[in-house]
Design a binder for these strands. Structure first.
Lengths: 227, 227
DNA sequence: GACATGCCACTGGCATGCCAGTTGAATGCC
DNA sequence: GGCATTCAACTGGCATGCCAGTGGCATGTC
C-alpha cells in the first residue's frame, strides 16, 4: 500500500477551520487569501481551496468583489440547523435501532447511568458523554453520507454563540435521561420509538437553548439579505 | 444594486456536471484538468475548482496521484442515498405539513388527479409531475439547507443507471396515489402522517428499483475499497 | 468646516510555469 | 521469447504574476 502525501490544502483547511470555529476571527474583517497564506506559511493556492471548501461547508460567506467573511447565523439559520438535526439524528437513531446497540453505545450508557444517579450531577462530564453518545450513534447507523452531513452541521452550529453555553443541572439531568431512553429503544430494536425519542430530545434541547438566549433572542443575530 | 460578474468557475462547474450526469464520460478515464480546460476553452484554475466542488458534491472521486474519475456507486452507496432520502424528504413532508399546503403543491395535485383516474396512465407525465411534486414539497418546507442537501443527493443518484428506468404502469399508478396521500396529510396539517406516508412512498419506490435491477443486482456495482 | 473627487491599497479571479509522483510502454538483456 | 529496466508522457499540487473591480482615505475646492 502506498501512502498519499500530506496535502497543504488539508492543512490549511484544518487550521483555518479551527480559527473560524474558535472565534479567533472577527466576522467583520475579511479572510484574505494573501494574509492567511503568509500567516500559515503557504502559497495562496491551498489557502484559496481551503476557503472554498469552508464556504461550501457553510462556515464562510463570500461577498463578491469584497472578500470572504465568517458567516453570521441568523435566527432562521438556527431554525434550519435545528430542523436538519431532526432529520439526520432522527434517521441515525432509526438506523441504529434496526441494527441494535453497539459496544460504543453501551459504553456511553455505562458512563451515563452513574451520572444521573448521583446527587449533584457533573454537568461537564454529562455534556462530554452526551456528545460521545451522539457520535457513537452515527457510527452505529453505518451511513457515511449521514455522518458527513451531521459533522458539517455540527461545524456550522459551532458558529452560534450559545452552543458553548453550559446547561443547567436540571436540564443536564433531563438530557441524560433522554439519552438513556433513546438507547433503550435502540437496544430493544424499536426504530420508530428511537426516532421519536430523538426528536423529543432535540426539541427540548432546542427549547432550552432558545430560553438561554432569553432577551438576546430576536432578529439581528445576523444580516437580513439573502446571500 | 451591483451585479456580480459571471464566473468562469461556475460555467466550468455546470458544464462538467452536465458531462458527468449525462454519462458522456467513461468512468475509467480520468477527467484531466488540462484536457478539460482546453476542451472548455478555459484555464486550469476554474476547471480545477469546479472539479473540487464536484468531488465535494460526491459526483467525482480522486485517486491520489492518478487522477479524478466519475464516481461509481456501489450497492452500499445506493443504500446510503436511499436512507438519506428518507431523512430529507421525510423532514420536508413533516415541515410542509406544519405550514399547510401551497399553490405549488395544489397545482401538482390538480395534475395528478386526472392521471390516476384515467384508464391507461401516462407514465412519463406522471413521473414528470412526480418530480415537480417533490420539488414543490421542498419549497413548501422553507429550509434552504434541506433543499440544498436534497439536490446534492439527487445529483448523486443521477449516477445510478436504473434511475432513468421508467416505472411500470402499475407502479406509476401506485406512486401517484402515494403522492396524493402525502398531500392529503399536508393539507390536513398532520406532520406525523405526512412523514410516515413519505417514508412508505420512498420505501416502495426503492423496492421497485431494486426489483427492476433484478438479476443485475449484487456486489460489483462499484469498487470495494474505501475512498 | 463640509463636501466632492480622485487615487491607491486592497479584494478575489484566473493563467501559467514548475515540480513530484505514477504508469505503462518501449527497450535492452538474458 | 520472456523478463527486468528505463524513460517519457501523463496526473494533480502548488506558487506566483497579472488583471479588474471596490472602498476608503487623502486631498482639493468652495
Amino acid at each position: 500500500m502506498i501512502k498519499p502525501p500530506p496535502l497543504r490544502r488539508d492543512d490549511a483547511y484544518a487550521r483555518i477551520r479551527d480559527l473560524v470555529v474558535s472565534r479567533a476571527i472577527d466576522p467583520d474583517e475579511p479572510l484574505s487569501e494573501r494574509s492567511l497564506a503568509e500567516a500559515l506559511g503557504l502559497g495562496r493556492t491551498p489557502v484559496r481551496e481551503a476557503l472554498r471548501a469552508l464556504t461550501q461547508d457553510g462556515l464562510l460567506v463570500v461577498h463578491p468583489m469584497r472578500g470572504t467573511f465568517v458567516r453570521r447565523l441568523s435566527f432562521d439559520d438556527l431554525r434550519e440547523i435545528h430542523e436538519m438535526r431532526l432529520a439526520l439524528e432522527g434517521l441515525a437513531a432509526f438506523l441504529a435501532a434496526t441494527r441494535g446497540s453497539t459496544p460504543d453505545l453501551d459504553d456511553c450508557v455505562a458512563q451515563l447511568r452513574p451520572l444521573v444517579a448521583a446527587e449533584t450531577i457533573d454537568v461537564d462530564a454529562a455534556q462530554q458523554v452526551g456528545w460521545a453518545f451522539h457520535d457513537a450513534l452515527f457510527r452505529a447507523a453505518e451511513n457515511g453520507r449521514l455522518t458527513a452531513a451531521y459533522e458539517a452541521l455540527r461545524a456550522q452550529s459551532g458558529l452560534a454563540l450559545q452552543t458553548m453555553r453550559r446547561y443547567s443541572p436540571d436540564r443536564t439531568r433531563q438530557a441524560v435521561r433522554e439519552h438513556l431512553d433513546i438507547h433503550a429503544a435502540i437496544a430493544a430494536r424499536d426504530p420508530e420509538a428511537a426516532q421519536q425519542r430523538m426528536w423529543r430530545h432535540l426539541a427540548s434541547a432546542f427549547d432550552a437553548r432558545l430560553q438561554a438566549l432569553g432577551a438576546t433572542r430576536p432578529q439581528d443575530t445576523g444580516r437580513k439579505g439573502r446571500s
